[in-house]
C-alpha cells in the first residue's frame, strides 16, 4: 500500500503530466476558460485514464504485441464514449460547452502515455492508481489555469459571480491568454525544480 501512495503522489507532483511531462496540453488549454469545464474535463480524464490503465493491465498477458497500440486505443475510446454518453445524459449543458474536446480525450497523450509507460508493465491495481492520479494531477493544473482565466476574464468562479467591480480582462478568455498562463506556470515549476536540484547537488 505504501507503494501506491508514492505512485499517486508522484503523479500529482514530481511527475505531473502537464507541468513536468508536458503532455495533455491540447485539451488543457481549450477547456480552461471556465473552472466548471476544467473540473468536468479533469474528472473525465482521471476516470478514463484510471480505467483504461486498469483494463489494459488486466489484459497485459493476452494482448498480442503486434496490435498493442490498436487495442490500447480501442479501450481508451471505449471509456471515452461511456464518459461522453454519461455527460450528455446527466450534464447536458456542460457536454455542449466541452463539445468535441470530450472526444479528444482519446488522443490525449497522457492516457496513451500512462498505458505504454506504466500499465503495460505493472499489475492492475497500481495501474489504476497511477492512471487515476495522473488525471488528478492534470485536473489540479487545469483548475489553477482556469481559476486565473475565469476570475480575471469573467469575474466569476465556477460560474458564481463574485460581484467584484473591476474591468474584466477579456484577453483572459481568448486563446493567447491560455498560452501565457501555462507558460508562466511551467516556468515557475521548472525554476523551482532546478533550484531544488542545485541544492541537492551542493549539499
Amino acid at each position: 500500500m505504501a507503494d501506491l501512495k508514492v505512485v499517486a503522489r508522484n503523479q500529482i507532483t514530481k511527475e505531473n503530466q502537464v507541468l513536468r511531462q508536458i503532455l495533455g496540453i491540447c485539451s488543457s488549454l481549450a477547456v480552461t476558460n471556465l473552472m466548471m469545464n476544467s473540473l468536468v474535463m479533469g474528472l473525465g480524464v482521471a476516470f478514463v485514464t484510471g480505467l483504461s490503465s486498469f483494463t489494459i493491465s488486466l489484459l497485459n498477458k493476452l494482448i498480442p504485441q503486434r496490435i498493442r497500440m490498436l487495442i490500447q486505443t480501442f479501450v481508451i475510446a471505449f471509456y471515452v464514449i461511456l464518459v461522453n454518453l454519461f455527460l450528455q445524459a446527466y450534464m447536458p449543458d456542460i457536454s455542449k460547452q466541452l463539445g468535441p474536446y470530450v472526444g479528444l480525450i482519446i488522443t490525449n497523450c497522457i492516457i496513451m502515455g500512462r498505458a505504454e509507460a506504466f500499465a503495460a508493465q505493472n499489475p492492475p491495481l497500481p495501474a489504476l492508481v497511477d492512471g487515476f492520479f495522473s488525471g488528478i494531477g492534470y485536473l489540479l493544473v487545469l483548475l489553477v489555469i482556469s481559476f486565473i482565466r475565469e476570475f480575471l476574464g469573467f469575474g466569476t468562479l465556477f460560474g458564481i459571480d463574485l460581484g467584484l467591480n473591476f474591468t474584466r480582462w477579456t484577453l483572459m478568455v481568448m486563446p493567447p491568454a491560455a498560452f501565457f498562463v501555462i507558460a508562466i506556470l511551467i516556468w515557475f515549476t521548472s525554476a523551482r525544480t532546478i533550484k531544488a536540484e542545485q541544492k541537492e547537488r551542493s549539499s
Partner: peptide, 24 residues
C-alpha cells in the same frame, strides 16, 4: 483476439447507448 475485443466492447457500448438514449 481483435474480433472478440471489438465485439465485447461494441456490444457494451450499444447497450449503454440504448440505456442512456431516453435520458439524452
Amino acid at each position: 483476439f481483435m474480433v472478440l475485443v471489438s465485439m465485447i466492447l461494441t456490444s457494451i457500448l450499444a447497450v449503454s447507448n440504448a440505456a442512456f438514449l431516453p435520458t439524452i
